[in-house]
């Protein structure tokens, strides 16, 4: 299977008043038509990786990589026009909170149609309208005509996130980056959104990067998991083997989760070790020194 995305030694640093602050330090992975999870605490650089792939980082960020390609195309060298062509149509991203990620003054349907319109795809008039209704139905919205005309503040969080997914999938992209797509939602709605996402991604044969801080969610949803510590991948592992992870940081993360079947009086606290920054890392259970 040819890889969709190849990332080799990705580095991101933010220029600040006191010099550069590294956010991502030498991250490498490749992605086929599969579901990859990236987990880590807040500040570990997981969102930055997603935004670096789409070149969304502000000018103050310095992004370098030995290789950052999408279907063989170098992402770092793209012209603004080529980049626009790529975004929305080939690579897209679902963001955290639909209350902020949808434009408050435009009808939801127009925002979804815009994805097709800016790429000159999907026709116009009734044909375009029909396509938007179709994708709204695909994300399991039962009254698509009403949602088309609705403004974001008239939708619940779950509905808003479905509209967001519709907007990002309508142009049939091949890679979707989902940046904490369920963190802002009610617990009851999370599962629905994930299953919609899962269904659409597998049916369309897309690649998916799921960025999350939620180990359980990622373990249950993804094929493969990258565990990120301070901008560095300390462990890469099959999701089903996550319980057998070896890096002390991964083990610490697992140990700090509450378990229904084994209640403990006090949850373990994660002890961090600065040596992890350049200590050994683990790939599929094997220690790799670098």
């Amino acid at each position: 299977m040819a890889a969709l995305l190849n990332v080799d030694n990705l580095q991101v640093a933010f220029r600040g008043p006191r010099g550069e602050v590294p956010a991502v330090r030498g991250v490498s992975f490749s992605l086929g038509r599969e579901k990859l999870g990236i987990v880590g605490e807040s500040g570990s650089g997981k969102s930055t990786i997603g935004r670096a792939i789409l070149r969304l980082l502000p000018d103050s960020a310095r992004v370098t990589a030995d290789r950052l390609t999408f279907e063989g195309q170098d992402l770092l060298g793209l012209s603004p026009r080529a980049l626009r062509n790529l975004r929305g149509r080939h690579i897209t991203m679902v963001m955290q909170d639909p209350r902020y990620s949808l434009n408050p003054v435009l009808p939801v349907g127009d925002q979804i149609a815009e994805t097709l319109r800016v790429h000159g795809a999907g026709g116009r008039g009734r044909e375009l309208y029909r396509k938007v209704l179709d994708i709204l139905e695909a994300v399991q919205i039962r009254d698509p005509e009403r949602v088309y005309r609705a403004y974001p503040h008239e939708l619940s969080g779950g509905m808003g996130q479905r509209a967001m997914i519709a907007m990002m999938l309508i142009a049939d992209p091949r890679l979707l980056i989902a940046d904490e797509p369920t963190s802002a939602l009610d617990v009851t709605v999370r599962r629905q959104i994930l299953s919609i996402l899962d269904d659409l991604v597998s049916r369309r044969g897309m690649g998916l990067i799921l960025i999350s801080h939620d180990l359980n969610l990622v373990a249950g949803f993804c094929d493969r998991v990258l565990i990120l510590y301070a901008g560095r991948v300390v462990e890469e592992i099959e999701a089903r083997n996550l319980h057998a992870c070896r890096h002390p940081y991964s083990r610490g993360l697992l140990a700090s989760l509450p378990r229904l079947e084994q209640p403990v009086g006090e949850l373990a606290t994660l002890q961090r070790d600065p040596a992890w920054l350049d200590g050994p890392v683990y790939r599929f259970g094997e220690e790799v020194s670098r």
């Binding site: 897209t92 963001m95 435009l106």
Partner: peptide, 23 residues
């Protein structure tokens, strides 16, 4: 964040500024 959304969709910078933000 909705400005980022518009950019992710592939909307041109001019449209991001003069349509999405200005509205």
């Amino acid at each position: 964040e909705y400005i980022t959304t518009a950019r992710v969709k592939g909307v041109s910078e001019a449209r991001v500024i003069w349509v999405h933000a200005l509205r």
